[in-house]
Design a binder for these strands. Structure first.
Length: 526
RNA sequence: CGGGGAGUAGCGCAGCCUGGUAGCGCAUCUGCUUUGGGAGCAGAGGGUCGCAAGUUCGAAUCUUGUCUCCCCGACCA
């Protein structure tokens, strides 16, 4: 077919078999398995998080935990099991979570006489325990004990934990029945203080996403119909995935006094009177990893932002001829230790000398798929002449279809390694921001316009959606809002949030015909 | 939880309709040759065919049940 092989660039042979354009959902699955991030566990909706995936989570924990502590919040740990009676106290909360609860009813197994085991009917629990879907209720019980006086406020706590929600439809990292997260719970003297904390947590998530995950997000308030069960106001950060869908990447809730009332969290104020606390809760989960995959991944696998990469540089000795092993490995080892003494992004550089036996090229592609930011390949001649050969994962290919390695002296590389790492972090963020901004459309101010924009919206393969619409609306409530939600639902759309700091829009609300009072983002979502 | 699809070697799949104790590609191992880089040739190892019952002389193949995964929908971080 190719008439002129000399001038026609060779087709790139990508590391994955599925492309984003071909089948985005299958591509997502393949990245997770090819990058050895997670695998299925045999238990419905639950996954095994493998070292590379868990390493990314540990980085997220490490950086997020520092921010949480810097805000004066203290870590603690509450039980996995919550007495049913605790949970039952907040009515809206119950409505929201009751359908997806794991319940513990027995404490012993006995033989069933057929070689199996069954719960012992004699060992039924007096009161069933639920496996926590979130911990407002138990933590509320503790807060009620801990808070007596205005001097005890604000009470700022956080826990890193696993939670369980019996999901009907699961996807690795994005929605699993059990997931890992951080949940902050705070109690305050009044609304003003609690609201400030809610927004502080939201801003913490926004800056964390942008800076650590290199994932641009919009921070804003969720519409009434999307509120956390029992919350007075819910805020979120929303990220745009490469297929144009929105992902809620973190939430922060102002809970008002509802939970305080249910758990009896009150204090004596300076005037000597009893007052109810205003509480907040906020969390991010392993879902962030799904966001990172769908923000930065490409047709060769994952690309991990350096700030959260378990390893930022991998050194691959090109082991081939036994005679040079020793000198080559010594050279690589020296390189590793020189790099490890340096700092990038405010921390020591994380570098791995991968001297496992095996074909070097095989190992290279494994690291490409894992998305390690910088790969160094070192051959015998490099070692002898003090050179290195390096490729940036975010700039993997040359136009001619070859891997974009560049050779330089060891000194040159040592001199620029840290800035390369920092540049990759910046560059991933810039790329994602540019893509997102290109997929936000403005100026649609009628319902027909919205319908037209999203009709036949999927591309030929059904893998790509036209991004987000930024528009004004009149912020209807109650039944009027329900009507809007129904219209959007028929278009498979949702209101993501009202971005903070967006000025009052001009014109009329396309749903109600009333004057628009605030800006919203409308999109398909995960 | 409703509709659809699927579970066979580490990964991707064929075989199933028309039952006769399992095959291909990649990966793995061995040898030779090559080699500044995703090598070639030859040979080898590796499978309770998701699980459990049933039909049958005989089941990956037919029947029933069950578990898990994927897609669409309802629901949700």
């Amino acid at each position: 077919m190719t008439q002129n092989p000399q001038i026609k660039p060779a087709p790139i042979k990508h590391a994955l078999t599925t492309t984003r354009a071909g089948d985005f959902a299958a591509w997502y699955q393949e990245v997770i398995s090819a990058a050895e991030m997670a695998e299925e566990s045999g238990v419905r909706g639950c996954m095994v998080i493998r070292p590379w995936g868990y390493g990314i989570w540990e980085r997220i924990q490490h950086l997020m935990d520092a921010r949480i502590k810097a805000a004066g919040v203290e870590n603690c740990y509450f039980p996995l099991f919550i007495p049913l009676s605790y949970f039952a106290k907040e009515a809206e909360h119950v409505d929201g979570f009751a359908k997806e609860m794991a319940v513990v009813t027995h404490h012993r197994l006995i033989a069933d006489g057929k070689g199996g085991l069954v719960p012992d009917p004699e060992a039924k629990l007096e009161e069933p325990l639920i496996v926590r879907p979130t911990s407002e209720t138990v933590i509320g019980q503790a807060m009620a004990r801990w808070v007596q006086s205005w001097r005890d406020l604000p009470l700022l706590t956080n826990q890193w934990a696993n939670v369980v929600r019996w999901e009907m439809r699961t996807r690795m990292f994005l929605r699993t029945s059990e997931f890992l997260w951080q949940e902050g719970h705070t109690a305050h003297a009044d609304r003003t203080d609690a609201m400030a904390e809610t927004l502080r947590a939201l801003e913490m998530y926004r800056s964390f996403s942008e800076e650590a995950l290199a994932m641009p997000v919009v921070a804003g308030e969720k519409p009434e119909n999307e509120r956390f069960p029992g919350a007075a106001a819910t805020y979120s950060i929303e990220a745009m995935m490469q297929d144009g869908k929105a992902l809620q990447a973190g939430t922060s809730h102002y809970l008002g006094t509802g939970f305080a009332e249910a758990a009896g969290i009150h204090y004596q104020n300076k005037e000597g009177q009893q007052a109810l606390c205003h509480t907040t809760s906020w969390g991010v989960s392993t879902r962030l990893i799904g966001g990172v995959i769908m923000t930065h991944g490409d047709d060769d696998g994952l690309r991990v932002p350096p700030a959260i990469a378990p390893q930022q540089i991998v050194i691959l000795p090109m082991l081939r001829d036994t005679d040079e092993y020793e000198a080559l490995l010594a050279y690589c080892e020296e390189l590793r230790s020189s790099l490890a003494k340096q700092q990038a992004l405010g921390e020591p550089i994380r570098v791995l000398h991968d001297k496992r036996p095996g074909k070097a090229t095989q190992k290279r592609w494994a690291w490409v798929k894992k998305g390690v930011p910088l790969i160094l390949e070192i051959g015998g001649r490099d070692a002898a002449s003090g050179q290195v050969s390096v490729v940036r994962r975010d700039r993997l290919w040359q136009d001619n279809g070859k891997v974009n390695f560049s050779a330089m002296s060891r000194e040159d590389f040592l001199g620029r390694a840290a800035s390369e790492i920092e540049d990759i972090q910046r560059s991933l963020h810039a790329e994602a921001t540019e893509r997102r901004d290109a997929q936000i459309v403005r100026g649609i101010d009628t319902l027909d316009g919205l319908k037209a924009y999203f009709s036949g919206d999927e591309d030929k393969a059904g893998q790509k959606y036209p991004g987000w619409v930024e528009m004004g609306w009149s912020r209807p409530t109650g039944a009027a809002l329900e009507a809007v939600v129904e219209v959007l639902k028929s278009l498979k759309l949702t209101i993501r949030n009202t971005p903070l700091g967006a000025g009052k829009p001009e014109g009329l609300c396309p749903f109600t015909g009333e004057a628009a009072v605030e800006t919203i983002y409308v999109a398909r979502s995960y």
